Simulated scan of single mutants.
Amino acid sequence: MYLFVQSINARTRLDAAEGKNLAHLARECFFNHQPLTLDFLNVGQVSQAFCQALLCPLTNEFGADFLNQWLQLKNLSAEVSGVMQSALSELDDYFDGLARFQAQTTDQEIVSLNSLWLIKARELCRDKPFCARYILGITDQDLRQAIGRLSLEDIEHIAQSGWLCFAPRMPNHLFTQINTKQRNGIDVLLTLSGGGE
């Protein structure tokens, strides 16, 4: 995807909110196996908070090597480039702060959920990839293979991240309907099969 940054912002100076929006867009592209090019043509100013909101979470989530291949920044003015370099030089501080935050807020129930889910996912990805695809919703073959190769140490490390490793797959309207009336098992299965991927 090729995007002119100026065309999506009416503001002359880009700040943290615009950085978060672009980071969200980048995630969508990466999860759909699309590279992203951000063209900064005619963008005169960005704040350091913009750069940190855009680059720090993406670097944490995908890694610098991945971003070097999948994210391109074009037509950076000297001023914008200087602010970007300054923000990147503070990545160590960002990651140290993130590690401290995660250590303080790690919820043991989240850790348990992650561990159980990852162990089951690894088992299904190794032995029953069809079940991993349809029961757990792991539709990407490369991801199934990567999960199938996880060691117990890898699983423990991921589980301790403090972030839930999976998301609900049911459509929003299912929860609304369940809250308004009793549903029997067949209704739930029909709803799931009708709203599948």
Rank of each mutant, 00 (worst) to 15 (best):
M1D: 02
V5S: 00
V5N: 04
Q6F: 08
S7E: 14
A10W: 04
T12I: 07
L14S: 02
A17K: 07
L22K: 09
L22Q: 04
L25W: 01
R27I: 02
F30R: 07
F30H: 08
F31G: 05
N32S: 09
Q34E: 12
P35C: 05
P35G: 02
L36S: 05
T37V: 15
T37E: 12
L38C: 05
F40E: 05
F40M: 07
F40Y: 05
V43D: 01
G44E: 10
G44K: 09
G44Y: 00
V46K: 04
Q48F: 05
C51A: 11
C51G: 06
C51M: 10
C56A: 15
C56L: 02
T59H: 06
N60R: 12
F62Y: 13
A64F: 02
L67P: 03
Q69H: 15
Q69Y: 10
W70L: 02
L71N: 00
L73C: 07
K74W: 00
L76D: 02
L76Y: 01
L76V: 03
A78C: 10
A78Q: 10
E79D: 05
S81Y: 09
G82K: 09
G82N: 05
M84D: 00
E90R: 14
L91F: 03
G97P: 00
G97L: 08
A99G: 05
R100N: 10
R100A: 09
F101E: 12
Q104F: 03
D107K: 12
D107L: 13
Q108D: 07
Q108F: 11
Q108K: 15
I110F: 00
V111S: 03
S112A: 14
S112F: 13
L113V: 12
N114R: 08
S115K: 14
W117E: 08
W117T: 10
W117Y: 14
I119E: 08
K120C: 13
R122K: 00
E123K: 06
L124F: 01
D127S: 15
R133N: 14
L136Q: 01
L136R: 09
G137K: 12
D140W: 12
Q141F: 14
Q141L: 15
D142T: 15
Q145C: 10
Q145L: 13
G148W: 03
R149Y: 09
L150Y: 11
L150S: 06
L152Q: 13
E153P: 01
E153Y: 08
E153R: 14
D154S: 04
D154A: 07
D154F: 01
H157Q: 13
G162W: 01
F166H: 05
F166L: 01
A167F: 15
P168A: 11
H173R: 13
L174I: 08
L174V: 00
F175K: 14
N179P: 11
T180N: 14
K181G: 04
K181V: 03
K181M: 04
N184I: 10
I186Q: 11
D187V: 09
V188D: 00
L190K: 15
G194I: 04
